[in-house]
Amino acid sequence: MKRRVFAYPYVVWMILFIVIPMLFIFYYAVNVNGQFTLTKFIATLKDAGKWKVLWASVVMAFKTTLICLLLAYPIAYILSNMKKSVAGFISVLFFVPMWMNFVLRTYAWQAILEYLLPDLKKFLGLEGSVLMVLVYDFLPFMIMPLYNTLSKLDKSLLEASRDLGANSAVTFFRVVLPLSVPGIVSGITMVFIPAITAFTVPALIGNGMYHLYGNEIELAFKTLSGQGDYAVGSTLSIILLISVLVSTLIMNHFDKDQQQGGQLW
């Protein structure tokens, strides 16, 4: 029981940097100039424009996740069937970019799309460019859990499947795919949640002309003269918080059915 003491630093940390800031958000959402009022909170909830941006962010996050999954699954599958040493080496190549800060990499993409390949940016459009960079940034987060699950798959199950007369397509769809669901769910969680709150990528790649929900919150907090509208910004933050919470609950629900198999986190 004494070991509990080791958890205290984290508890203090959590209260200081998670609980108190959250209380501030709720406080500012319903207080204007120190007075309690729900007007701004309700006005923000009724603002159809903001909901449209939230929907656009959800759609963008969905697209990012889907493309990441379609790209990552074959990669992870091929890697898991390779010799361990070779697979280890190749997977390192996938993760090398992650040793560099994510904002720096996004800046690099800004320069590439603006000055090296302006035609590509024209072809993709702002939305397409943002999507591409999001996929680039989050792809490793999808590969990692998938590779982990697939490489721990019991190979004797595949042999059994073949012994019983299933061809490779049937084996894949009826054996490999169902067994890799935990990895897929982990990957989706790790891509979808950060993608829905994406802020840097649209800010840097979108030329100030493509916003997602994160940018909308920033805008609320820093309008003219720094007298940002804290009530609006806080309300938007609460909405985003709830959206993320709901998405996480949905993912967890899927996850519950599949507790076996390797999971990274």
């Binding site: 449209k52 656009a56 805008l219 309008t223």
Partner: peptide
């Protein structure tokens, strides 16, 4: 009066990001 500018700006910036 800054409020009026802010509201106009908010509307404009939201319009730049129309999806």
């Amino acid at each position: 009066f800054v409020e009026v500018f802010n509201r106009a700006w908010d509307e404009y910036v939201s319009a730049t990001g129309v999806h």
